[in-house]
């Protein structure tokens, strides 16, 4: 005969804020111990080392002409790539996995709101990805200090926009992850959308339709790079490119101002988080 149940404990279900913290802590543990986390960390460090090596060996003019242009060349494009990669790594299957891997069965039947699970996991993914961002930041600043002995204030601005973009990107991967029930679909679709489709749409809208692509998140995220430009690129710029036979084609390029960029990113963040939450609330475990 099994021994008598001796736990006489009475429970008081915690509030949702506390639930979110619990979910965040344990999901974070799961994240940082995963192989994925180390792969991503290696990729981030490799990118940083590659840049360090290239700059040290070739001493490219564009990097070394001024402190600001150093940060502009080093940071802008690369950090968006790292952000999207970490968002996909941490968020791509965060929700779909609860269904496909059946880990949700362990959690959902407990007295906890589904939204607390979602938000806790979101915060954990954000913290995990933030580590990548900070590692790359450290490598950036290290080089900046070495060559120029300082960090331009514009870099801190750009970094804070990057943190916002990170939250937005993870919000979006969570959203896609709650649409699909299989991890591979969720991850593949998210990668294709975040890395290719958005920027493709952006250039199609701008160049062919001559319309400001204010509704595309990657357009807003350009402020990460633009804020480091000297001068800040103008909102619209039409240039005529000459074609043979005396004809010419006009190309319009658009640039979001800092407030516009912030609004676009915050908009995407809120909409994706809220719709993702609603999807998860209604999704069935079967």
């Amino acid at each position: 005969m099994a021994q008598k149940l001796k736990f006489e404990e009475k429970t008081i279900v915690p509030n949702s804020f506390y639930h979110i913290t619990i979910m965040m802590l344990y999901s974070f543990l799961e994240y940082v111990r995963s192989r994925r986390f180390f792969i991503l960390l290696l990729i981030t460090i490799a990118i940083g080392m590659l840049l360090t090596g290239v700059v040290a060996y070739y001493r490219p003019q564009s990097f070394l002409v001024s402190e600001q242009s150093f940060y502009a060349n080093w940071w802008g494009e690369t950090v968006t790539f790292i952000i999207i990669l970490s968002a996909v790594f941490f968020g791509g299957d965060a929700i779909s996995g609860e269904f496909q891997n059946k880990t949700g069965y362990f959690l959902v039947g407990n007295p906890i709101r589904r939204s607390s699970i979602y938000l806790g996991k979101f915060l954990a993914a954000f913290c995990g990805a933030l580590i990548m961002l900070l590692v790359f930041t450290a490598m950036t600043i290290g080089n900046g200090l070495y060559y120029f002995g300082g960090v331009t204030n514009l870099f801190w601005e750009s970094l804070s926009f990057s943190v916002l973009y990170l939250a937005t990107a993870i919000g979006m991967t969570f959203f896609f992850s709650s649409i699909f029930k299989t991890n591979s679909t969720a991850i593949v679709v998210t990668i294709i959308l975040m890395l290719f489709v958005f920027s493709l749409m952006q250039s199609l809208v701008a160049n062919l339709a001559h319309y400001e692509p204010w509704f595309i998140v990657t357009y807003g995220a350009q402020i990460i790079n633009n804020v480091l430009m000297n001068p800040y690129p103008p909102s619209t710029q039409t240039t005529a490119a000459p074609l043979p036979h005396g004809q010419s084609i006009t190309v319009t390029s658009y640039n979001a101002t800092v407030p516009e960029g912030l609004i676009i990113m915050i908009g995407y963040f809120i909409v994706s988080l809220v719709t993702g939450l609603i999807l998860f609330e209604h999704k069935e475990f079967n």
Partner: peptide, 27 residues
Amino acid sequence: VLIETPEIYGSLSAREALSMIAEIKGI
């Protein structure tokens, strides 16, 4: 509750997994 055969986050130890549920339940 125990429905079908749930899976648990693999990198957690059994102690961590159970503590998570204990905290969620409000022990």
